[in-house]
Simulated scan of single mutants.
Amino acid sequence: MGDDDSPRLKRLLGRLRWSPASPPSDMPRPPVAFIHIPKTAGTTFHTILRKQYGQSSIAAVRAFTPDELEAQMQSLGVADRADPDVEAVSGHMIFGAHRYLDGPLQYLTFVREPVSRVISDYYYVRRTPDHDFYDPVVTENYSLADYVVSGITIYTNNVQTRMISGIGRDVDFGDCTSDMLDRALHNLDEHFAGIGLTERFDESVTLMQRKLGWSLPMYKTRNRTKKRPGRAEIPDATRTLIREHNALDLKLYQYAKERFHRERSKQEEDAFERDLRRLHLVNRIYSPSVKLYISLRKAVNRLLGRDSW
């Protein structure tokens, strides 16, 4: 587990992985690019990608401007398929990876209700000492409202629109335009095979599984922000401030929700519910098994005085 499943758990769960709604796993498939928008369950989803494509077949990319994306794609040997073993590109990156590949590329992403996403991001920063923005936020004791208007990060200013439009940080904080939203919506329509909703994670994953011919996805929830107040506990004025700074993301999220509901409604209900139940069943077994395995591994490492095995 961790990056690899234990052989015993693989045998236990293997019989549940096949889905009759999906094409055979040996069929040729184009590579995918997962745009991981911060605090949208992307870390959890990346573990699913690892199991579908294999860690060695995934190129990790972090790029928030077109120039950064080009440099990353070139340095990783992904551009022009210099590395034919790469089946997926994944990370905090803006749209545009297909421009550096000689062939088709299917984009995937998850989006989240913008107010909840920003609240989660703020409390994640506060509990993560190695985060880029931990020092100003904690040292200067930023409130959530302070963080939203600070301008220290685009994460509080239409980051979902920025990343899906492919513009990213090339537009300054507070300067997003409706043209960026139009570009993002066009990209969703023309290039994205899967657009998941964080709030409907399992259904979103099941839709992607059926569309892309994946084996049954298994995952343990990762990187969830803990010990944060509920949305209802956030002052109205602060929530209004978040909405004002993420007006484009609110529209993009609504558009993505409508697409999700359209795609969900097209599924044959009994077959889809069967796949969804199978997903729930296998992860009720898999997730606690991973948690136990990781706890035991950490305990052994502490006893032996080592960082990992």
Rank of each mutant, 00 (worst) to 15 (best):
V118G: 00
N246E: 05
R262C: 08
D189V: 11
F260Q: 01
Y155K: 09
E87A: 14
P66S: 02
S295M: 15
H186D: 15
R210Q: 12
A145H: 04
P235G: 04
N223V: 06
F201W: 08
M180E: 11
N158F: 07
H261R: 14
K291M: 06
R127Y: 10
F34I: 05
H131L: 08
G54S: 03
T128W: 12
D182A: 15
R306Q: 09
S57R: 12
L144M: 05
V89P: 02
Q52H: 09
I154L: 15
D121F: 14
K266Q: 15
T240P: 01
Y134D: 00
M93K: 01
S165C: 07
F173W: 11
G305C: 08
L207R: 02
F201K: 03
F110K: 02
S215N: 13
H98S: 11
I37C: 03
S204A: 08
A237Q: 11
S90Q: 08
S120W: 05
V282E: 02
K226I: 14
T139R: 15
A79Q: 11
H280I: 12
G42F: 07
D26M: 11
I234C: 03
T240G: 09
A41D: 01
D236A: 14
M1F: 10
M93V: 09
S204R: 03
A88E: 04
R297H: 08
K298G: 00
D85L: 15
V148E: 03
N187L: 07
L16F: 12
E190R: 14
F201L: 09
V148T: 01
G194E: 08
V125N: 03
D67V: 15
K266W: 13
D170M: 13
K251I: 13
S295L: 14
T206R: 09
R259E: 12
S19H: 08
